[in-house]
Amino acid sequence: MSHFKPALTNTENSLSTPANTTFPAGEETHFHTRRGSNGDLDTGRVLILFAHPRFEKSRVNRSLLRALPASGDITLHDLYELYPDYNIDVEAEKELLLTHDILIWYHPFYIYSAPAILKQWLDLVLEYGWAHGAGGDFLKDKTAFNVITTGGTRETYRGDGFNRFTIREFLRPFEQTARLCKMIYLPPFAVQGTYRLTDEELARHAGDYAFLLRQLGAGAYDREAMEPCDFLNDWIAAGQRTKAP
């Protein structure tokens, strides 16, 4: 076979790890689609498009997902688990979009963008004539935003920082895609500096994420208060500050 690689040793070493990194019993690693039971379309149902090729190694994303409220208004859709061959079922995805009002692109920040499958999803699902262009009104007035995890801290994503641009600037393609589909685009929710997060900080972020999802699911948020923030994290922090005495 021409595909056969004679130098197997390295591959074998790198492949021999997963058995040791298996999740503790009971922990969910195959989400596929965890669908909310709520069939009504009127409330703000949330669709999380989760794209993480190495989820089993991600401490941060595991914590964030574990804190996810088990609500009938929230659907978790694990793209890498469903389409390991990148062969996205466009019709099924479109149907799913129609039954939700808020769309979250939830992914780690790889080379200043999303993992490949999310781009594949955007390219295939957001069809001309359906999502945008002539007659493309099916996503109109829905809400979209990114939830991301980055290795670099917030400070490194500044004009004078190491990464030279802000997160908001890097996310422009998503912002404009949302606009193109006549959707409302909100600031991102970001968990940053993931390598150095302490357990307490991580727990706080997970709590914030769950809080955000609950508010969105219940429709209990003010879009105009969110939009000026750099991150939805700031909106949450501000909300909590005002609530505090």
């Binding site: 001309y128 262009g133 002539a134």
Partner: peptide
């Protein structure tokens, strides 16, 4: 479907639109 998607996603029709 395949050809349509590819065409719409990257090609001139969209741009002219």
């Amino acid at each position: 479907v395949n050809t349509t998607i590819n065409d719409h996603a990257w090609e001139s029709e969209l741009r002219t639109d």
